[in-house]
Amino acid sequence: MGARIAAVDYFLPDEVLTNEDLSREFPEWSVEKISAKTGIDRRHISGPDEFSSDLAIAAGRALFANRDIDPQSIDYLIVCTQSPDYYLPSTACIVQDALGLPTSAGATDITLGCSGYIYGLGLAKGLIESGQARRVLVITADTYTKFINPADKSVRTIFGDGAAATLVTDDGDAASITAITYGTDGAGAKSLIVPNGGLRRGAGIQPKADAAARELDSSGYDLYMDGPDIFNFTLRVVPGTVEEILAKAGAELGDIDLFVFHQANAFMLEHLRKKLGVPADRFFVSLAESGNTVSSTIPIALADAERTGVLKPGMKIMLLGFGVGLSWGGLVATW
């Protein structure tokens, strides 16, 4: 018994924030400057009455419709989100009912960001290969833009909202999801944080996250990111993690047909590609039209790579997520 990724699809909200829109708000940042720094042209923004469960449901419906999947065939649902509709109930319970999944299906949330897709796949693999489930639906959904202070251009240029749905199934043979590697450094929790809106004030662990300290009028959440710290963390952990994944897989860099990393921003991805020595044609980047959608960047990129013919059946791919937590994870899969 082994687990494999059977199908991927995604959903983006209708409202779009372009670089032209941002440049009009912040004239000191030209369209060209934003594009050059981020590699992002457009971000999709959830509407005032559009939340993570809505995006998750839309992504699940897209997957079912486009891949002819029967909702009643799903026996476990994992929803990865850091922007749940409510403290309780879990978003997964709302999504299970709306998608028409059987009441015999398990449903649970996991609270992870940029590495969340890898963790979701790892949990799905464990459920399948331990005999607890045969068809697991992994949905990633985040509405980070609701956390962002409108006056904070540093993060408004980066983040967009979106959701992706992945079907993980028992393929009846050897596992095609392998070499899963995880990592956590909670000492970096202060580097990317939403300081307000929860039960505890985040300024206690990151004083710089306080809106007043940033000369901002609080919007109620005020997402804070220490960009240089996140960049340095990424350069520190990703190369070693790639080596660890390859060692677990018994593979070399040249054995991987396609690398799909968390789509943080184009500058960071290009820096990582060069540092790792991966040829550009084997390193997939897809964030210009969606921005950094946190937990959904990897599955969105996978779906785009498949639709454009870059990703073909039988290819060996490396997936790697890294960011908020601080947390990271990666794996090798056969498509």
Rank of each mutant, 00 (worst) to 15 (best):
G2F: 13
A3R: 05
R4P: 00
I5M: 08
V8G: 05
Y10H: 15
Y10M: 10
E15L: 05
L22A: 02
L22D: 02
S23L: 07
E25D: 12
E25V: 07
F26W: 14
P27W: 03
E28T: 07
W29F: 15
S35T: 11
K37V: 13
I40R: 03
I40T: 07
H44E: 06
G47K: 14
P48T: 12
P48L: 13
S52T: 15
S53I: 10
A56Q: 12
A58W: 00
A59T: 06
A59L: 07
A59Y: 01
G60Q: 02
F64A: 06
N66F: 05
D70P: 01
L77K: 01
L77S: 01
V79E: 04
V79G: 03
C80P: 01
P84D: 11
P84G: 11
Y86W: 12
Y87W: 11
P89A: 07
D97S: 13
T103A: 13
G106H: 11
G106C: 09
I110C: 03
T111H: 14
L112V: 12
L112W: 02
G113H: 03
S115Q: 09
Y119V: 02
A124C: 09
A124M: 09
G126K: 07
G126L: 08
I128S: 01
E129R: 05
E129W: 10
S130I: 03
G131H: 08
L137T: 05
V138K: 05
I139L: 11
A141Q: 02
D142R: 01
N149E: 07
R156D: 00
T157H: 00
A163C: 06
A164E: 11
V168C: 10
G172V: 06
S176A: 09
A179S: 15
A179Y: 06
I180Q: 08
Y182S: 09
T184V: 14
G188D: 09
A189F: 09
I193F: 09
P195Y: 00
N196G: 04
L199Q: 13
R200D: 09
R201P: 00
A203K: 08
K208A: 15
A212Q: 13
R214F: 12
S218T: 15
F231W: 15
F231K: 05
L235E: 09
G240P: 02
G240T: 09
T241K: 00
A247R: 15
A247D: 15
A247C: 06
A249P: 06
E252I: 08
L253N: 04
D257L: 07
D257E: 12
F261Y: 14
A264F: 10
N265R: 12
N265W: 08
A266T: 09
F267M: 13
K274S: 12
V278R: 00
A280R: 14
R282Q: 14
V285R: 04
S286W: 08
A288K: 13
S290H: 12
S290Y: 02
G291R: 01
S295N: 03
S296V: 12
S296W: 09
I300S: 03
L302P: 01
A303T: 03
E306G: 04
L311V: 10
K312R: 15
G314W: 10
M315V: 07
K316L: 13
I317D: 01
M318S: 09
L320M: 10
G323E: 14
G325C: 15
L326N: 10
G329P: 02
T334Q: 11
W335M: 14
